[in-house]
Amino acid sequence: MPQSNTSTPAARPTSLESGVGRARRRPALGPLDYTRRWWLRLIVALTFLLLYAPILTLVAFSFNDSRRNIVWRGFTFKYYEKAWNNDSLIDAFANSLSIAVISTVISTILGVLVAIFLWRFRFPGKAVYEGFMALPIVIPEICMGVAMMAFFARVGWPNDLPWPLSLSSITIAHIAFSFPFVAIIVRARLVGFNRELEDAAKDLGASEWRTMCDIVLPYLKPGIVAGALIAFTLSLDDFVITFFTAGPKTITLPVKIFSMVRFSVTPEVNAASTVLILITVIATALAMRFQALARGTKDGRG
């Protein structure tokens, strides 16, 4: 633990205590020095232990040379090999990635359009419009899942199309719930935008379109990248909605993992899960990075 917590003014020792504090190496516990109270530290440590133990166990056992995930029997890659040779698993993985890529592209475009639209225009019924846009985010996933399932069955959406098109129904559903998220992230970036920049470009002779490309989009770039990465992980990670829209031949990795887990718990599942964890954690970390970047270079005021 560092020396007296200088970041929060409250945590500085009060004048009475400071005399005592100076004599020792560590200053006395300030009244609001909560992080240095043992019971709070214990709670936090326990929480993090509980949060990480299951995941670390799962990852560790994907490398364990034993079918029964109980004791450590040595390091192996064989379950990764097995997973790699499991065609249905690889198919599911390929499906997941293809869906995620297409969904990311389209939902990023739609999300950016909505964000700019809501930021720029005032119109009657805007609050209602925004409410509907937020609906895919707030309603329980299962409600949206069954709605998509019923919809595609009702309109008779063909699900025996050749490969990339066979994924169309899942992709459409993914886009529907991803793009409002993208819109939120991009809109957060737009809040800091100085509209005089836009006016200045027009004043200098740029058309509406030119202004969008030269001024607004470059400004939005970090937000767009963050939004795209979030859309990617949302799609890659989604289980519930995919579970309801997937056909027998169009299974994604989470759905495949679910069926494998229901069937039996094997280290193969751990291996597949570890790969998925790795991809989503990296993508999300990048998204966070870009969002931080977006905040760092705020507003771009002149």
């Binding site: 030119r210 400004y219 002149g302």
Partner: peptide
């Protein structure tokens, strides 16, 4: 963008992602 007038904005609105040269050249380029 078609008016024969130009404006100096209160916040200056100097494009943050362009160099000084590019800022000044922008109106001529477009």
């Amino acid at each position: 963008n078609r008016r024969p007038v130009n404006m100096v904005f209160q916040s200056y609105a100097v494009f943050p992602h362009m160099s000084v040269f590019d800022n000044v050249a922008y109106g001529l380029r477009v």
